[in-house]
Simulated scan of single mutants.
Amino acid sequence: MSVRILTLVGSLRAGSHNRRLAEAAVKIAPEGTDVQIYEGLADVPFYNEDIDVEGSVPAAAAELREAAARADALLLVTPEYNGTMPAALKNAIDWLSRPFGGGAISGKPVAVVGTAFGQYGGVWAQDEARKAVGIAGGMVVEHAKLAIPGSMTRFAELHPVEDAEVTAGLTVVIESLAGARAAA
Results as ranks from 00 to 15, higher is better:
163 D>G: 05
15 G>L: 08
129 A>W: 00
70 R>P: 04
11 S>K: 06
20 R>W: 03
17 H>R: 14
65 R>K: 15
100 F>E: 06
75 L>I: 08
127 D>K: 13
114 G>E: 09
166 V>H: 05
155 F>G: 09
139 M>D: 06
31 E>G: 13
133 V>G: 05
172 V>D: 08
87 A>M: 03
144 A>P: 07
28 I>V: 15
22 A>P: 05
181 R>S: 12
53 V>R: 11
184 A>M: 12
6 L>T: 14
85 M>Y: 09
59 A>E: 14
68 A>I: 10
83 G>R: 03
163 D>W: 04
122 G>R: 00
117 F>Y: 06
113 V>G: 10
43 D>N: 14
120 Y>K: 02
57 V>I: 14
71 A>H: 12
145 K>R: 15
74 L>V: 14
114 G>R: 09
102 G>K: 11
148 I>D: 00
123 V>N: 00
154 R>P: 09
77 V>I: 09
121 G>A: 10
82 N>S: 13
147 A>R: 00
22 A>C: 03
16 S>R: 03
160 P>D: 11
38 Y>G: 10
174 I>F: 01
22 A>L: 09
55 G>T: 08
34 D>Q: 13
24 A>L: 06
52 D>R: 11
45 P>F: 10
172 V>P: 00
49 E>K: 07
134 G>R: 02
140 V>D: 00
99 P>H: 08
184 A>D: 02
152 M>T: 14
75 L>T: 12
157 E>S: 15
55 G>S: 12
40 G>H: 09
39 E>M: 07
2 S>A: 15
109 P>K: 07
119 Q>D: 13
27 K>F: 01
77 V>E: 02
141 V>S: 11
157 E>L: 10
21 L>M: 14
33 T>R: 07
168 A>C: 02
133 V>N: 02
58 P>W: 04
49 E>N: 07
177 L>R: 08
112 V>S: 03
31 E>A: 13
24 A>I: 09
96 L>H: 08
98 R>K: 12
94 D>C: 06
92 A>W: 01
48 N>S: 15
98 R>S: 05
111 A>V: 12
128 E>K: 09
24 A>N: 02
79 P>L: 11
113 V>Y: 03
108 K>D: 10
60 A>W: 08
18 N>S: 05
46 F>P: 07
116 A>C: 05
120 Y>N: 04
53 V>S: 01
147 A>D: 02
135 I>P: 00
96 L>M: 09
61 A>K: 04
169 G>T: 13
114 G>Q: 13
146 L>I: 06
84 T>C: 04
157 E>P: 00
151 S>F: 02
30 P>F: 03
68 A>E: 02
103 G>D: 04
42 A>H: 12
92 A>S: 12
166 V>I: 15
135 I>F: 10
90 K>V: 01
41 L>E: 08
130 R>C: 08
47 Y>H: 15
163 D>Y: 04
9 V>Q: 01
75 L>E: 05
171 T>N: 09
92 A>E: 04
109 P>G: 12
45 P>D: 10
7 T>W: 04
72 D>F: 06
123 V>Q: 05
105 I>C: 01
68 A>R: 06
90 K>P: 00
3 V>W: 07
45 P>S: 14
146 L>Q: 10
36 Q>K: 14
109 P>I: 13
133 V>A: 14
36 Q>M: 12
72 D>E: 06
148 I>A: 00
33 T>F: 02
164 A>Y: 05
136 A>I: 10
90 K>H: 08
43 D>L: 15
67 A>V: 06
15 G>T: 13
137 G>S: 07
152 M>K: 10
